[in-house]
Every structure is written in C-alpha cells, then in structure tokens.
Simulated assay, not measured.
Amino acid sequence: MNDEIHRIKNEIIDSFDEELEQQMEEDRLDELVADGLSEPTIDRKIYFRELFRLQHELVRLQDWVQYKKLKMIVLFEGRDSAGKGGAIKRVTQRLNPRVCRVVALPAPTERERSQWYFQRYVQHLPTAGEMVLFDRSWYNRAGVERVMGFCTPDELEEFFRSVPEFERMLVRSGIILVKYWFSITDEEQEFRFQMRINDPLKQWKLSPMDLESRVHWEDYTRAKEEMLERTHIPEAPWWVVQAVDKKKARLNMIAHLLSQIPYEHVPKETIELPARVRGADYSRHPVPEEMYVPEKY
C-alpha cells in the first residue's frame, strides 16, 4: 500500500512538473532579451497554487456541462502574441478533449470564401454536453480581414449588421456564449515578438502576418474599438482581459469563466476496479529484443 501511495504522489508531482517545465521555458525566453521590458509578475507560488485550484474547478465545470447537457462557446480574441494560446492551454490542460475541444481554423479556402460568412464556423458549434473554445473566431472579419484588406467595406458592414443577430440566435438556441478580448500594450507586443525572433524554438510562432501587424498597430486599434462598440450586446457581451502580465491574465480569465455558469457538484457512482480474469490456458509471449525502444535514459 505504501508503495502505491508513493507512486500516486510521484504521478501528481509529474503532472505539476509539466506546468513548471512550461513556465521555466517561458522564463528562459525572457533571458534572451533585455531586462525590464515586462511588468512585474505574480509570485510563482501563488500562481501555481491558484492555477491548480482553478483547474480543479474547471474539471467540476466540465462535469456539470456534461451532466446537464449544456452547450458552451468561449471566444478568444486579441492581438498577435496577446496570450490567447497560453490561456487556452491552461483551460484545457486537465479537461477531457471529448468534452472540451479547441477550434483554430486556418485561412478560408476558395470554396469557403464563396459561402455565407458564418457557415464554416457553424459546423464547429457545440452539441449537448460540449465546451468549444475558439482560438480566433468569426471576428477575424472585424480584425485581420479588415486591416489587411481581405474583405470589402460592404462585407465588413454586413458583418457588423449580422453578427449581433447571429449571436442572439445562438443564445436563444441555448448556447452559452462568452467572449474574451486579450489586451496588451504596444511595448509588450514588441517585447514578445523580440523573444520569438531570438529563440529558434519559438520562431515558428512568428508569421509574416505577425510582422505586418506591427506596421498596422494603429489600424488594428481602430478596428478593435469599432468591433467592441458594435458587437458588445447584452446577450453576448465582451470581456476585456488585461494581458500584459500573462500569469495574472490566465488566472483572471479562468476565474471569470467559472463565474459565468452556476455549476454544482455532479453525483458520481463509486468506481471499483474489477479483478483481472486469468485464463489457465494463457501464457504471455515474449517480445523480441529488437522491437524495444533503446533505453538511453
């Protein structure tokens, strides 16, 4: 029994280490650029304690969504490098991918560009008992498509006319819709881009569109301001996350998300592991040595 408890403790520590390893990697990136460009961050012990507590609550929320057959959408929007992906990772890290899934659509195909604008998003909407997180969403039209000239002024205006009704329709159908905008400063975006430029492990995150976004900072600001003004509706309001400090942003966003649904404890049956059935005529065949992965560690 003691050996089993020891192994369980080690397994828990390993799961914590995954989060620590990811955080240490971020700290390593910080050392590659000049000090003092980022705001002071939350104490590490407090951060991890609260993150694990909130992730435990996210599991309870997930169970409630599944138990009550709820349908939930969470939109993550913001400038490039605003921390959307990191926040999504912390939300989904301990959850069942069959219940909570992430949608991150690529650029539309030629066929999709000829469809009703919302059509390619509709097929990813949740069914009963599902949570869907959109890593960017139909708001691409109000942001990158507008700034980079990928849509016409008439298409943009039609989007602004349609999106409030589209979202009201989703809410009337029983979908819980939560919209987050991750807000960072000009200086912080430059700092994060410099980190990506100077680290070969992160350079893949820096696309030509990201570089172009630096040139169009003010254009994106104007686009964001109009988007928030015209699509902030009572049925589906926007929630702005102060995201210069990534750790605080994650904790604040998750805590707010948990407050959006009055979830409760889900009754569960006691799980008992059945005894293994052993057949008298079964004997395990040895695995050839050449099939094993070499144990270099």
Rank of each mutant, 00 (worst) to 15 (best):
N2V: 15
E4M: 10
S15L: 13
S15I: 15
F16T: 03
F16G: 00
E21H: 11
M24K: 08
R28H: 09
A34V: 07
D35V: 07
G36N: 03
D43S: 02
F48M: 01
F48Q: 00
E50I: 00
R53A: 15
L54K: 03
L58R: 05
V59T: 13
V65G: 01
K68D: 05
V74W: 02
L75K: 01
E77F: 03
R79I: 12
D80I: 09
S81E: 02
K84W: 07
A87L: 03
K89I: 09
L95K: 04
N96W: 04
N96P: 02
V102I: 13
A104G: 12
P108D: 05
Q119R: 09
L133S: 09
F134V: 11
R136Y: 03
S137Q: 09
W138G: 02
W138S: 01
G143Y: 11
R146N: 12
R146M: 08
V147W: 00
T152I: 07
F160A: 05
E165A: 15
R172L: 13
R172M: 14
K179D: 06
F182Q: 06
F182H: 05
E187H: 14
Q189E: 08
Q189P: 01
I197L: 15
I197V: 15
P200S: 11
K202D: 01
L206E: 00
H216I: 05
W217L: 13
T221R: 12
W238V: 12
W239G: 03
V240H: 08
V241M: 01
A249N: 04
N252K: 05
N252E: 13
M253Q: 02
A255W: 11
H256P: 12
L257G: 03
L258S: 04
E264V: 09
V266R: 14
I271G: 04
V277T: 12
D281F: 10
D281E: 05
P294R: 11
K296D: 09
